[in-house]
């Protein structure tokens, strides 16, 4: 009896139990059958994986350093796409912004890149542009889910002004988006409001009595939700 009798079902069962993404990748390069088993859908430990810490770039460089905490080592990843750009991260993706305010989503491992609408489509863009707030302009970017897993995603960008209580968590559930602020308040954005037009006006409902209304309004005014075009979705 030989492992080569292992069928795809069994290899998939094993692939689903691999906890570290590195091991999952090594497994996918073993043979073509393993590669078929190691499809992204079978990687189940996305959320429990300790994130890599992205290191600041040392001047012009084609690669980026990522510190791997469990292994205690720095990995250098070829990533010319993020050279000279400001990066945010969410759900395993980087949100990059260049000096001309072009925004993209970038997967640091597959290097899949999705161009997003230029930031000039942001509401109040003219006012904000003159502020020259390259560093603090955007306070938070968040994806609703890992793009590799699901096609139905949205990216939320919160920008401009001083936002006291940044949303720390962001969940899309059915027709609503929920934001949880660092002070514990819950914001709800309805899906109907998102689908109306390119720059989406966001309505916020008040599901809990103890919302801090001032903070809430600050965020409503300054939040823009992008819906990537159909062909941009993976």
């Amino acid at each position: 009896m030989n492992w080569s009798e292992l069928n795809l079902d069994l290899l998939e069962e094993i692939a689903r139990r691999i906890k570290l993404y590195d091991d999952f990748v090594a497994f996918s390069i073993v043979c073509s059958l393993c590669r078929s088993a190691a499809v992204k859908e079978n990687f189940r430990f996305m959320s429990s994986h300790i994130p890599l810490l992205m290191l600041p770039s040392k001047g012009c460089s084609n690669s980026c350093g990522f510190f791997d905490l469990p292994k205690g080592m720095t990995r250098s990843i070829l990533l010319p796409e993020c050279d000279g750009k400001k990066c945010f991260s969410s759900k395993g993706w980087l949100i990059t912004i260049d000096l001309d305010w072009n925004m993209s989503l970038l997967n640091p491992f597959s290097r899949v890149q999705i161009e997003l609408s230029h930031m000039e489509m942001f509401e109040n863009w003219e006012d904000l542009e003159t502020l020259n707030m390259q560093v603090s302009f955007i306070s938070k970017c968040a994806l609703s889910m890992n793009l590799s897993l699901r096609a139905d995603y949205i990216l939320m960008v919160i920008y401009g002004g001083q936002i006291a209580n940044l949303p720390i968590e962001f969940v899309k559930y059915k027709t609503k988006i929920y934001l949880v602020e660092s002070v514990g308040a819950l914001l709800v954005v309805t899906r109907e409001a998102i689908e109306e037009e390119t720059i989406f006006q966001i309505f916020v409902k008040y599901p809990e009595a103890n919302l801090i209304v001032y903070t809430l309004r600050t965020i409503i005014k300054r939040a823009t939700v992008f819906y990537p075009k159909e062909e941009e979705r993976i």
């Binding site: 080569s4 069962e13 090594a26």
Partner: peptide, 27 residues
């Protein structure tokens, strides 16, 4: 058992995993 197999290939090289499964590299 599949969980045990996944654990045994933790942090191993591609070559090790190939030997572990006894499969040929068909790339």
């Amino acid at each position: 058992l599949t969980g045990v197999a996944a654990k045994r290939i933790e942090n191993k090289s591609v070559e090790y995993v190939r030997a572990f499964f006894g499969v040929e590299n068909d790339f």
